[in-house]
Design a protein around this nucleic acid. Structure first.
Lengths: 250, 250
DNA sequence: ACCACCACTGTCAGATTCTGGCAGCAGCCA
DNA sequence: TGGCTGCTGCCAGAATCTGACAGTGGTGGT
């Protein structure tokens, strides 16, 4: 039942579990960590730690060690072994293909890469099944947007202010400076959800009406999570819980 | 680089690799296989085989053994450890959420389950990132279909004939018997691609115009893969390669 | 009832692997 | 230069894995 998500069991780590833990620990520190520290945190000798690191690198984990500094895990994440139903894989692959067809180039490329990685480890028969089961959204949804949504996603992740020119439904232009915290993918259009400094309120902006994007380095003074929560609360009271996102299950 | 997709290396299997191999072997045989056979196929003693099976079961693998029969792996698949970029996970999760909002109940449920499994093993920070990054297609795409697309997918997977009533664009009704081999997910409508016995040609059918589904037990006399290939060839000559599906990247 | 076959468990010695400590080399920084 | 660090080779002891044997209980066929 547990599937090696085992964080905090009764200390009987069987190497392979320890390796996953190592990655988890590395993820937490984003600054270089010394081998000795890591070894201490895992209750293991330095020598063994070196061996573990080597093993992980051998498996493709992007861990980099530099003398005099320590270890850094390049952004990324190792998914432990997971059991999926045929239909679950089908769903995941179908979804990824949809994303791969989205206009957002960076996301699209990421989806393609993910697909390749998944396909690489799939048994042949299943791969063939999948090949046949999903022909994707063709031309239809290719809304053309003048801006790079990848930059917007970056701004969201780093909690930076974002400036741009917005043309509203009536065609009126206005200059905006906002605190972006979420993106909605709708049928034909993507929507940025943000706190608008100009209007001092939550606003959403259709990506195809935005232009002149200006990704600043200025961090906005709130936590993204709390903005999101607050915004959702707003929705609940005004729209009677029209769920915009159920999230990953919490 | 290789990531334990290692099939056929120079025999230095480190248990964990062997376990993955075991699952692969089990997948191939869909009828019950005796422990002795499995042990032989992996070049390992029966006792060890039993231990390996126990380990896998302990990790959540749906392997069932019955005395007098052998072992069966309930349909499903174990994904080995995989490295993903942040953006790749983002893409996969976003895609899965899209699928989760699709009208096809079974697929939708599968997507939700897959999401739960992925979310369960994600470190907290990443999970929060994802929570914020994708608000999904809201009401928009909920095309109502009178048929259960799950049945259609099943017929495709098992290569069974499918009967139904079709109402074409002009409103004319007709009874069809087809060999289904693919489903296309378009913007607002899902499309079944099949060889139509009535018309003796490839046809596609909008799901919202189908009714009176009759999933037969009769296997159609062609391989799904070859039908798919042939159909694609048709497309290439008539439509100058309007790609309907690039597949998993091979 | 009988038998062959099978899944499954316990035990135990030998093989295999893992681990920790030590020594040594090389790169980075002050 | 010295201190810190990554990294490798080596080796003995610890931990784990493996194979063989013995035994239990369930299933299907004759």
């Amino acid at each position: 039942m547990d599937l090696s998500g085992g964080n905090g069991q009764i200390w009987a780590m069987s190497r392979s579990e320890r390796l996953l833990d190592l990655i988890q620990i590395l993820r937490r520190h984003r600054r270089p960590v010394s081998g000795r520290t890591l070894a201490g945190e895992m209750g293991v000798s330095i020598r063994t730690l070196y061996r573990d690191i080597a093993t992980l690198q051998g498996q493709g984990a992007p861990i980099e060690g530099e003398a005099g500094l320590g270890y850094v895990l390049k952004p990324g994440f190792m998914l432990p072994p997971l059991m999926f139903t045929d239909e679950e894989i089908e769903a995941v692959v179908l979804g990824s293909r949809w994303v791969a067809k989205q206009p957002d180039k960076r996301l699209s490329a990421a989806a393609t890469d993910a697909l390749a990685k998944i396909a690489a480890v799939l048994p042949d028969d299943l791969r063939e099944d999948l090949d046949a089961t999903a022909l994707l959204v063709g031309p239809g949804a290719e809304a053309t947007e003048g801006i790079d949504l990848g930059l917007v996603r970056l701004a969201i992740r780093n909690e930076r202010k974002l400036g741009f020119l917005y043309r509203d439904g009536a065609g009126a232009q206005s200059q905006r400076m906002v605190w972006p915290f979420a993106i909605g993918f709708f049928d034909k259009v993507r929507v940025l959800v943000a706190w608008c400094e100009t209007r001092q309120d939550f606003r959403h902006f259709r990506a195809d009406r935005m232009s002149g994007l200006n990704a600043t380095d200025v961090r906005y003074p709130r936590r993204r999570q709390s903005l999101l929560k607050e915004w959702r609360a707003t929705l609940d009271t005004t729209q009677a819980g029209r769920d915009a996102s159920k999230g990953t299950g919490r």
